[in-house]
Structures are given as C-alpha cells and as structure tokens.
Amino acid sequence: MLKLKEVSKVFGEVVVLDHVSLSVAKSGILGLAGASGSGKSTLLRCVQGFEKPDSGEIECNGRVCFIFQDFQLFPHMNVLQNLVYAPDLKADGSARQKNEEKALALLKSLGLGDKANSFPALLSGGQKQRAALARSLMIDPDIILCDEPTSGLDVMSIADVISLLREVRSRGVTMVIASHDLGFLTEISEKVILLKNGRIVVEIDPKQHDDPSKLLTQYY
C-alpha cells in the first residue's frame, strides 16, 4: 500500500513535482508515463527516500526497494554474491545456507541458473535487468520501484520483463514503474498516470480503452 498526498519537490527554480497525489493498492502495478524531465524518476526517488519532498506526505507500509535504470549491480561481486550480500548481513550459518538456496532457485527461475558465478560485466542488458530484479526480491520487499525497466532491451527481452513483473506481482509485491514505453506500460499496469511538468495530467485504466497508448499520446 502506497499513498502520496500533495507531494511537491523543487530543484532550484524548477518545480519537478507539483502537488502530486496518488495511491496504489497492495500488489497493484502503477505505471508512470511522461516525457523526459516530467518528474517520473524524482517521484520514485522521493518514495525511496533518496530525495526529500519539500511539502506533502508519503505514506508507505513495508519495505521499499529500487531497481535502477542502469541496474547498479555491484561490479566486484559475482551474481550470487550480489544477491546474497544484503540478506546475509542479518543471517548466520544455516540462514545463510538458506539464502544461497533461495538465490539459486530465484536465478534458475529467471533463466540465470548458469550465471550465478559470472560477474555483472559479462552479462547482457536483459540478464543484468533480471539479476537486479532477483537481488531486490532477495530482501522480500513489499514495494518495488522500477525506473525505466525496458530501456535498452530488445523486443524479446521486454516480453520477458512483462511476464517477470507479473510473476513478481503474484507474490504480493506492489510496483510502481516509470517508463517511456507506453506499449509496455499499458500492457503491464492496472493504472497509468501521465506526468507533465511535475503534474498529473491524466489517469487511465488501460483495460477500459481500445488503444490506451494512443489516448495517452494525446496528452503528452
């Protein structure tokens, strides 16, 4: 459950978020559309706490995890170490064993079974994306924030990301996804919000429209 009330953020003289209010139900997927500089990323960064809103309230229950556009895997650790490092900090012997088993199972289910010992530099874009998603799932988040999850991915990988995110939602995780890719957003989200100059211009339920992408472009 995630709720924003009248959230505003100003950088210098630029108003990046202008009284934004929204809410996402548990295990819902909210899509954030909008041109570059419309405030999508800043909104996500405020929810994670990387930026402090100048006014307004953010209410979120549970653990939040951020998936970066450029993944930010730790380059000096292999994929398995990337996954288990954070959960292992709070675990000892047998719990660490369990973390490793969980990580390996997760990697296998994401088609990265043979990449556990590879370093991030050797992975393709799609593989890094899946590894980053797996890493965030390891800490059992309640909310996942995805910044441009499809940027730089080919059509097949985007299809993979869609089925992957659906699978993550079925575990009860709430998601907020910021993306330029309207086709992808309207396919995956229950609700899509279009931001323009930090303001919500329109909010649609993609299922209610024949061509939601086209509808959204009219408001750009």
């Binding site: 994670q48 706490g49 990387f50 653990r63 939040v64 995890c65 951020f66 970066f68 450029d70 930010q72 895997l73 730790f74 490092y85 954070a86 900090l89 890493r135 965030s136 800490i139």
Partner: peptide, 13 residues
Amino acid sequence: PNGQFEAAISLGI
C-alpha cells in the same frame, strides 16, 4: 557512481 551508494541504501545495507 552515486547509484552504487543508493543501491546499497535501497537494499538496507
């Protein structure tokens, strides 16, 4: 990169 710090914070490290 700043993202490395933020990724660590996001994972609760």
